[in-house]
Design a protein around this nucleic acid. Sequence first.
DNA 1: GTACTGACTTGAAGGGAATTAA
DNA 2: TTAATTCCCTTCAAGTCAGTAC
Length: 604
Amino acid sequence: MKRCFCVISRFIYISAERNKGASLVSNVSRYYSGSAAAKTRSDLRWEESKSSDSQKWSRLEHKGPYFAPEYDPLPDNVPFYYDGRLLKLSPATEEIATFYAKMLDHEYTSKEVFQNNFFTDWREEMTDEERKLIKTLSKCDFSHMHKYFVEKSEERKNMTKEEKQVLKEESSRLMEEYGFCVLDGHREKIGNFKLEPPGLFRGRGEHPKMGKLKKRIQPEHVTINCSQDSKIPEAPAGHRWKRVQHDNTVTWLASWLENIHGRPKYIMLNPSSKLKGEKDWQKYETARQLKVCVNAIRKQYKRDWTSREMKSRQRGVAIYFIDKLALRAGNEKDEESADTVGCCSLRVEHISLHRRLDGLEHVVEFDFLGKDSIRYYNKVPVEKQVFKNLKLFIKHKDPEDDLFDRITTINLNKALNECMPGLTAKVFRTFNASTTLQDQLNKLTTEDMTVEEKILSYNRANRAVAILCNHQRAAPKTFEKSMQILQEKIQKKKEQIEEAKKELKEAKKAHKDAPSDKSKKLVEKKEKLVQRLCEQLKKLQLQETDREENKVIALGTSKLNYLDPRITVAWCKKHNVPIEKIYNKTQRDKFTWAIHMTDENFQF
DNA sequence: GTACTGACTTGAAGGGAATTAA
DNA sequence: TTAATTCCCTTCAAGTCAGTAC
């Protein structure tokens, strides 16, 4: 515990040193003592340090979670038919039926696993009578329910401004009442104060539990965490909490067990809070520490490639992959989830070895499903010794055997921790992502660029990271169409420029033949027009490049989770790019700490 | 060493709000 | 002004990793 506090103090020292004396504390004070805003209690929170690492707060008060609204039964004119016969379902059975009906035009409901899980769970909640009657899902006609919900959704879309305003006000009232807590005297935003409503579980990829019923959370399932001397939140009328505890070594305000996997879920603070901000800062400082010792670590894992011990060799190759390819650690998973892997859980079937491929030597071809069942596909030339080792690791193994059978994420992280305190597999992802951003920004930005060009450079740097981390997204549905429209615009702009140039030439000639004030002004006017059109064309072309390159790449995840925000803040300051052009409101809130503490000289 | 639990971070998707184009 | 498109924000699933018990 003590050690971690020292680490925090050292962060301040390191930052102070690297930022030419601009420590978090002094920087933040300076920022807030400015004229723009009066110093409020919640602003001041950044200046306080905490007493120990295991203790997360001294005082915590909140209103408890907000429960999902009770089920509102369907009007009588929305029928449900079973085997062609009209059935009036009991409210509980009907509610679960509506979950399915709402999803009818989603691909999920066409999957057998989804259907079977849903039907089994649904039948369990039916009355005895209903269960006797309803025996086959395909005989259930949910279409009228479905139609009803489509109409409802249309109605919502077509609401008047006033009606929408009423809803908005109601939602901000809710936010005011339940959305904040008071932590050590500061009002902090809560991340997810609304409990998850009941519904059908939508796992990612080929999840064996897809379609199962996610049950309604009752107060009797919820544990409240707050300080003893605070006003204990009241359970809804007629109910009581499962438990009220006062554990200040954890950061959550409420928890419950979700019924699909039986694992706990929590209500926690928003990323803009001091608690989360400090943790984030600490994460990036750990990654910066790795920078100092990464060369030694790389030397070590290369030595391990020729170790006499198989375990060391496997560990050496695994850490090499984690470092070079930014793979995730790859913990063991149970049978009850989609079959996805990370580094340590790679199987023989996930790699192919090519002595030569596309003119390159010793190429490893990776093809596996990673987190969220996102495919990782990559062909990577590796060192000869790595290639030899991989051949050795797969020898006499079946495709479904573990590639690294002698190591686990636990002992891999233990080994990493011995190299550097606090080092784990995921630190490499943060380190490599942030290093890449810093390098790319340094390489791609020049002073003669316009702000738009600088932003394109930033996006390109960001994209390099997203590619490294394999952050993918589905191509936008209207991508081709919108791209075509943009290209047409560019063409039109080019034609306009041609036309304007021609007019300019004519104006110049006219001015030469018969100079006058009027003809001179016309030339100037035409010159300005050409210039303006050329600028517009350039902007469109930049937009085209950016959009094309971004088709299937998601930039948000790396921006939010892997890129030290101080790199971005410093870059913006150095190159006079308004921070709002890079970070939206949510992102600025999350990175308040970095925006306040960083000057233009910061380098990761 | 390993199975299990708990706490926390990371991640893509979806829907509504905001912005832009027609 | 309306329709189309983009962006933002929320949601909740799915990871990581530490701690504990045996």
